[in-house]
Design a protein around this nucleic acid. Structure first.
Lengths: 237, 237
DNA sequence: TGCGCAAAAATCGTATGCAATCTTTTCTCA
DNA sequence: TGAGAAAAGATTGCATACGATTTTTGCGCA
């Protein structure tokens, strides 16, 4: 897949930085796997696509590189990240460390409004799972991540929330790369159980369920190196 | 304090990005409190000081803004961050969540070489505490942070390591702003106890000690708002 | 045909210029 | 004298230009 094959909707409410808007759209494209890992993102091309100068495109790419979604090589350019199995493991190790704590914090702050938001989120998630079609899998991954982001926002710690945004984005990449098949339907029911615990203020249970949920997601990955890391490295560039 | 009062050593081994080198020096200056919170960092001034164009200076400031050490306002510029008490609490809440886990991971990976590195680190820390003078406090804060960064590097998860770099840097700012007095000597002995547990492979103990250690650091802060947030906000700009 | 090397093209790193925005100063008028 | 408005100055946002580095292309030669 080439970046030039993509079409990006025009940003309507761009009071804020244009670079930020471009970053958001590129991030969506990466997380949704419309841009495959390894795809080159040249400053000029990105700039042309979004109708901005290289300066702005470069800033957007720099942001993505900070988030770990893009890898930049000096004098060579930016590429959609291609996380190694080791990186994948570290992403999930980090989530195992952070998310149970986030679940506990969120359990202590749940309001009826939050519950409504979660229910809407889970309903949408269910719709994507029921759906069939080429985009179903993508939407499923994205919706699943959104559940965790919503939880992080309820927890009320903006620093951890930002960490989680990064971890969820990287997880989506990892799942797209190494995911096997249909853990997601199972994940959906786990989300519902977690919400149930949150709703009842049972923080311990929510935390434990979250830990298991992350374990299940990671267990569904196939993190064996495919054909020797050297060859793999050589082939992808 | 003004940024123009600072002198920055010339970067010798600058094969890598110049922007990154500038970021590192500015970060040191912020963490060491040579640049006070609220100080304006104009692109032009930074560029002149480091003898680069505004383009490069801007990139360095953007990086610092991602790390939370600098706050940028559109069309107004960049300022050394001035974390609120609420932000300070969130920094330490994040550390309480992450660092005990890092201690456990590190305990399982300690080698004799690591022990040597830790001992050297603690010795330097001790020297700074014994020292008197205007820079003693700064060096103390920095050395104390370095212990935690060393631990994170031993844990072997580069993602968590980067999170910790950010959290330690922000903590230094917070301690400089809200710290009372001499927890540090006490902190030093706590570091030694943690190392002891790590050396014996007692991960549970290391984890528990770390949690208490973070509690102690936060307990030494005075996070009461000084004179009403509105006035405070109005005065500092 | 296949290989090595040089020229060309593409791309990046950085400096600089201009317009837009914000801040400060100055001027006017009550 | 003080408040408000207008002008001047400073600073950012962004585009563009140019040298440096990398990649690709083209060509000669074995």
């Amino acid at each position: 897949m080439n970046i030039a094959d993509q079409t990006f909707p025009v940003v309507d409410s761009a009071i804020e930085d244009r670079a930020q808007a471009i970053r958001d759209q590129l991030r969506d494209a990466i997380v949704d796997r419309r841009l495959a890992p390894g795809t080159k993102l040249s400053e000029g091309e990105v700039g042309t696509l979004f109708d901005v100068s290289r300066t702005v495109a470069r800033a957007a790419l720099q942001m993505l590189s900070f988030e770990g979604l893009v890898r930049t090589e000096r004098n060579r350019g930016a590429f959609v990240a291609n996380p190694s199995p080791e990186e994948a493991r570290q992403v999930f190790a980090s989530r195992r460390l952070i998310e149970p704590g986030i679940a506990i914090a969120a359990a202590g702050r749940m309001t009826p409004a939050h519950v409504v938001a979660f229910k809407a989120q889970l309903e949408e998630e269910g719709r994507f799972i029921a759906e069939r079609g080429p985009n179903a899998r993508r939407s499923e991954i994205k919706a699943s991540g959104d559940f965790h982001l919503l939880l992080a926002s309820v927890a009320g710690n903006v620093i951890l929330q930002r960490f989680m945004e990064e971890l969820v984005a990287r997880s989506s990449l990892v799942i797209a790369l190494y995911g096997r098949s249909g853990v997601s339907s199972c994940g959906h029911s786990e989300h519902m159980n977690i919400l149930d615990a949150l709703e009842n203020g049972n923080s311990e249970r929510a935390s434990a369920l979250m830990l298991h949920h992350i374990d299940h997601i990671e267990a569904d990955l196939d993190l064996r190196v495919r054909s020797g890391p050297a060859l793999r490295q050589a082939l992808e560039l």
